[in-house]
Design a protein around this nucleic acid. Structure first.
Lengths: 207, 207
DNA sequence: CGGTGCATCAACCGATCGGTTGATGTCAGG
DNA sequence: CCTGACATCAACCGATCGGTTGATGCACCG
């Protein structure tokens, strides 16, 4: 019997997973949590075989929780809606054994839970494709905090001069940061940089 | 007994909703669909009291399906993850009776289904807030198809001249479209326009 | 028919951006 | 100590953008 903890902020999803896994026969749901902090407490308390972990949750997110649970001998299988670079890679790096999307069919999910319990990596096709792409194409380098800061102001419509004033630096420094941003994101101008940043989750609505 | 059809592309969510609604006592799930086209067929076939409709689905989306089902006497309650302007307003305009987010607690969902069956509007707090905001602040005007097209090319890094060549128009026309885009989105430059467009779902990853 | 919305176009000019090619300083890690 | 990453800065110049103030044409609707 594989013991599983479900972590998701949506009650509908928790219910759905509980119901689905009940039908697997060899899987028992031994706990639930609605965010990362609760997940940490529950997982430490019951020490399941597998944790089904959502990533984007209010309060502590999934990646942070995965990192904090590295010392617990439970396999973490990410189950989420998003397969953007900024979601997948941090989760894998934090220690997730697998990564699935929520549109995964029932049987596929059962298979994944069993594989994860054995310690085998499990990836949804789109995530696998993305990771293969990472191997072929050197990962886009992450932006430094300052670069993100500058790009955030540009996304709000600041000219380089205005951004410089906001950050108490010179316009030349802003331009240098932008040159680095363009190189890292593989673009040639600010508009394209903003677009790529949104697509990768580097910039979000909370700008 | 309130007869309900569930429309969502995620099997987990369909299962979760089916399980939840089974506990309501006065609700019966009489059908399911994984996209808009299937929803239309199922709803026409069983004519439920309430349709729980997701919006973003592959193939035909929820808004289109809502529009096509206006002649069927079923109430559509949107149940989705997103509450962006570009998701909420089109759904309401298409004829949805209510709009809820997937993090809605179980009892709240039951209450909403019962209200919707009676024809009463039901809105999640954040959606209600957004609609109230719409009344206070005139809605941002929607971009024309051509404006979206131009902005899409700008987001990919095209200069005005390059966008013009792509669209077989003059650079002056591109600039005119952009002037209109800036005015409608309340911004002053292309980078900010791209940012707002992403936040509102006007531009997505499929640029 | 008139009005509206949308698409298309022009020209001029100041402001800003992007490219370029340097440079210095600080901090952390090996 | 050395190296790499990051932050900071400068100056010049061509390219592009944004603002502005018009204009015409087409399709649709009342």
């Amino acid at each position: 019997m594989i013991r599983v903890v479900i972590v998701d902020d949506h009650p509908v999803v928790r219910d759905g997973l509980r119901g689905m896994l009940a039908a697997a026969g060899d899987v028992e749901v031994v706990g639930e949590a609605a965010d990362g902090a609760e997940a940490e407490a529950v997982v430490r308390a019951v020490v399941p075989d597998v944790v089904l972990m959502d990533l984007r949750m209010p309060g502590m997110d999934g990646v942070t929780a995965i990192g904090r649970l590295r010392d617990v001998p439970a396999r973490v299988l990410v189950l989420t809606t998003y397969d953007t670079d900024s979601d997948v890679l941090p989760a894998i790096k934090a220690g997730a054994t697998g990564y699935l999307l929520k549109d995964t069919p029932r049987e596929e999910l059962f298979r994944a839970v069993r594989s994860a319990a054995r310690g085998e990596a499990v990836l949804s096709p789109s995530v696998a494709t993305r990771l293969v792409g990472q191997v072929r194409t050197p990962a886009a380098e992450p932006l430094s905090d300052r670069e993100v800061e500058v790009l955030g102001l540009i996304a709000r419509g600041c000219t380089n001069r205005e951004a410089a004033a906001r950050l108490f630096i010179s316009e030349a420094t802003v331009k240098t940061h932008l040159v680095h941003v363009y190189a890292k994101l593989g673009v040639n101008d600010r508009a394209a940089a903003v677009a790529v940043a949104y697509e990768r989750g580097v910039l979000t609505g909370d700008r």
